[in-house]
Design a protein around this nucleic acid. Structure first.
Length: 778
DNA sequence: CAGTGAGCGAGCTTCCGCTTGACTT
């Protein structure tokens, strides 16, 4: 019989700890929370705010196993994380497993080392009920917000939508950034750069210096260039100062997601899945953390590794601390388990992520980089404007030897550039001066990781929810991830060379962005609606405010039900008021004009299946006509003309072989329909212009290719067919399709050969190829 | 990669934070 049972949250952690504790201890995992509010309905008694808990079906088995093991043990050690959620997990375990105080102990440790764990066992405590109450308050508040607000959206906007303390604010950030960009007016100004020929150590070099001030108008730039003709230039000042660069702290969930996105283009979900695999195979520490703390074990071995690989002068042991005061350090930073392994076995992306983590961790324990930055100022006798150029020389590379942090707004920097030898008072020969029209730039849109970073900065969400939240707002179609095509614009370039000024107009592409989050019509409408009716919830400080209340509960200064009841008493009336409100127009609706044919109003709004244009209203005797909006069209920008275009399809072309030929547009683009046959236009003709003759030609063409579809069949096996598809011949068998090897002639294949080909492909893939499912059922 | 396309209207949808497998559609 096992004397002791230790329960932790993660099975990987359990495995490691079991090794430290020896055979008197059995270590099991709860796999996170074992109990939650009931899945359906509010499951909170609104008269006294008592929560109704249940054990989710996928947790029943593990709970039973824990119960059996706990009954056999003499002592149960609850070792979940030392934060609000961890404390609640321990409390739920205590309740559900029916533990007794005399043989239950609550322990916490911050490092997974033998000494830390033994030390924890020496110093047990009881369950902190105030912390548990704080968690219940957090859980109940989130359920109330989510389950009260979402039904409002179902009624007022569209079914199946959702709202919540975290996701709705995430959408707001994306919406506001987009509006900021849309209303941004680029301001032009002239950037002036002078080029000089310098002879240094007998070799000719080009030196480029930028004027410190920009010139607002073209006439200013022209008159400045005029002044500079025959001007003399000389070096008026040289300043050299040392510069120190400090390494970035070790990775947290959020910073890892950002760097993996910037350096490798990983989505936050990809990063987390890779990190999970590295964690489960024991290669890195826990990947969901907001701590930058490193264990003493890691500090020591890093020191050794750096000294061995690079030399003692590169060592600089640093201990990092949380930015926020009083933050619970439940975990370490994300770091390699063994610092002496700069690389690992694994898939290419696993390796890349691991090496990134190793480099970041090692760099954080390395010396500052020391550089020398030189600023040269150049003056002219014809104007008071000054030109400047800088050079930077690395004196000691320090941590830069292994790692350099990336930034979202990275531009070409002159870092590392050395300047030619110059002296104060030296005359310089100017080869040309160029004044280029430049524009101020709008802020960048968020990518996934940048949005996570912003949420973290606002204290909204937790490391375990960053990736799922980004997923949710895309699943609900509040935002989409897309590339933004840049736009062309003209700009002016003036150049003074050899006493002459040239004036040119050039074009440039600006504003192109890759893989950015853009709000959809639904996102915009839902966001504006929520801000109108529930401004408190949408406030960027809402989470911070309630967190403060939860802290008070955790400190035992406030009963948790008071926090909830204060909130509920103002929130619930707002929900019922909004629900019962009778609106003339649907949320987000916009009237574009009057349809000249029917005299009925034309409007745009969010319909049952997304953004639509509507002619007439539901109250009319005649049913309104609907049209789905096309990709690229938005509620806010669609014009009356564009809207009316949408009603030109489907249209009837005429009769062919006693049946109507119509042209319409579907999920796969424009198509012709005749009897039961659909012919995709595939860009071959414009659906609005196509004539009956052209359509008939396409129908006949399709019939011909259909007739060539069957290459061979077999009498003894009717389900085996060799068919001619869009991508060439293939074998079709029992609803699945198989490639024919290039060495075979399709029409000559025997039934035996077909079976052999199928078997070979099943062996290779492990199963029969799946049929493609077009309609996702969910 | 291997072939679709409309849609009655009843009944359903939904939150945030902990944590990993189980499903063969």
């Amino acid at each position: 019989m096992q004397e002791n049972l230790v329960i932790v949250e993660s099975p990987a952690k359990a495995k490691t700890i079991e090794k430290f504790l020896g055979k008197d201890y059995k270590v099991m995992s709860s796999y996170g929370h074992i109990r939650d509010l009931k899945k359906k309905d509010l499951s909170i008694n609104i008269s006294n705010f008592d929560p109704e808990y249940e054990i989710p079906s996928d947790k029943k088995k593990i709970v039973q196993e824990l119960k059996d093991a706990s009954q056999k043990a003499k002592m149960v050690w609850l070792a979940s994380d030392e934060d609000r959620e961890g404390e609640a997990i321990s409390w739920h375990l205590f309740e559900v497993l029916g533990l007794k105080p005399e043989n239950t102990r609550r322990i916490v440790f911050h490092e997974i080392t033998k000494t830390a764990i033994l030390n924890a066992i020496e110093n047990p405590r009881g369950i902190d009920v105030n912390l548990v109450y704080a968690q219940q308050a957090r859980r109940v508040l989130d359920r109330i917000v989510g389950f009260k607000l979402s039904p409002v959206l179902w009624r007022k906007v569209k079914p199946s939508l959702s709202a919540g303390r975290v996701q709705s604010v995430a959408v707001r950030l994306v919406v506001e950034r987009e509006r900021e960009i849309k209303s941004f007016v680029p301001e032009p100004s002239y950037r002036v750069v002078a080029n000089f020929n310098v002879v240094s150590d007998g070799t000719k070099r080009e030196l480029s210096a930028e004027m410190r001030d920009r010139l607002p108008l073209k006439k200013d730039a022209l008159s400045f260039l005029n002044d500079c003709n025959d001007a003399e230039f000389k070096v008026s000042d040289i300043q050299t100062r040392p510069l120190k660069k400090t390494p970035a702290p070790p990775f947290t969930t959020s910073t890892l997601q950002q760097e993996a996105a910037r350096k490798f283009g990983f989505t936050v979900m990809q990063t987390m899945m890779l990190a999970q695999r590295l964690y489960e195979s024991g290669k890195i520490t826990y990947m969901r953390t907001d701590s930058v703390n490193l264990s003493s074990l890691c500090l020591n071995s890093s020191k050794q590794v750096i000294a061995e690989m690079m030399g003692e002068q590169y060592v600089c042991t640093r201990q990092y601390h949380q930015k926020q005061k009083g933050a619970q350090e439940a975990h370490e930073a994300i770091r390699p388990t063994y610092m002496d392994k700069p690389t690992i076995e694994g898939t290419a992306p696993e390796k890349r992520l691991y090496e990134l983590i190793w480099k970041r961790t090692i760099a954080s324990q390395m010396a500052d980089a020391e550089t020398e930055k030189t600023t040269v100022t150049i003056s002219t006798d014809k104007s008071a404007h000054l030109f400047q150029t800088t050079g930077e020389v690395v004196k000691f590379d320090g941590f830069l030897k292994v790692y350099r942090e990336s930034h979202d707004d990275e531009t070409d920097s002159q870092e590392g550039l050395s300047l030619p030898a110059l002296s104060i008072g030296q005359n310089l020969k100017c080869s040309f001066i160029q004044a280029t029209e430049r524009f101020t730039q709008h802020p960048q849109r968020y990518n996934e990781a940048a949005l996570v970073h912003k949420l973290e900065e606002l204290g909204i969400g937790r490391p375990s929810t960053y990736a799922p939240t980004i997923g949710t707002i895309q699943q609900r179609e509040y935002v989409v991830k897309d590339d933004i095509k840049g736009e062309e614009r003209e700009y002016n370039m003036l150049r003074l060379k050899g006493g002459k000024i040239t004036d040119e107009m050039l074009t440039e592409v600006f504003g192109a962005e890759k893989s950015k989050l853009i709000p959809t019509d639904i996102g915009l409408v839902v966001n504006d609606f929520l801000i109108d009716y529930f401004p408190d919830i949408m406030d960027y400080n809402f989470t911070a405010k309630v967190e403060k209340e939860f802290d008070d509960v955790a400190e035992g200064e406030k009963p948790w039900k008071n926090v909830i009841s204060d909130f509920y008493s103002t929130f619930e009336p707002m929900v019922s008021d909004t629900m019962s409100r009778k609106d003339e127009h649907k949320v987000g609706e916009r009237v574009l004009g009057i349809d000249p044919a029917s005299g009925k109003p034309v409007s745009v709004k969010i319909g049952r299946f997304g953004p639509i244009v509507q002619i007439g209203s539901a109250d009319d005797e005649e049913k309104p006509r609907f049209a789905q909006m096309k990709k690229g069209q938005t509620l806010e920008t669609i014009t009356m003309e564009e809207a009316m275009e949408l009603f030109r399809l489907p249209r009837t072309l005429g009769e062919f072989e006693d049946a109507t030929v119509t042209v319409g547009t579907g999920r796969f683009g424009p198509y012709i329909r005749h009897q039961n046959m659909y012919v995709s236009l595939q860009g071959k003709a414009d659906p609005l212009e196509i004539t009956l003759e052209e359509a008939v030609a396409l129908i006949t063409e399709k019939r011909e290719s259909e007739s060539k579809k069957v290459i061979k069949t077999y009498d003894e096996e009717p389900e085996m067919e060799i068919l001619n598809g869009r991508y060439g011949p293939y074998i079709s068998y029992k609803g699945s399709n198989y490639k024919i090897p290039k060495t075979k002639v399709p029409a000559d294949l025997t039934l035996e050969e077909c079976n052999a080909i199928i078997q070979a492909q099943i062996d290779k893939n492990g199963s029969a190829p799946r049929r493609r499912i077009f309609k996702a059922k969910k």
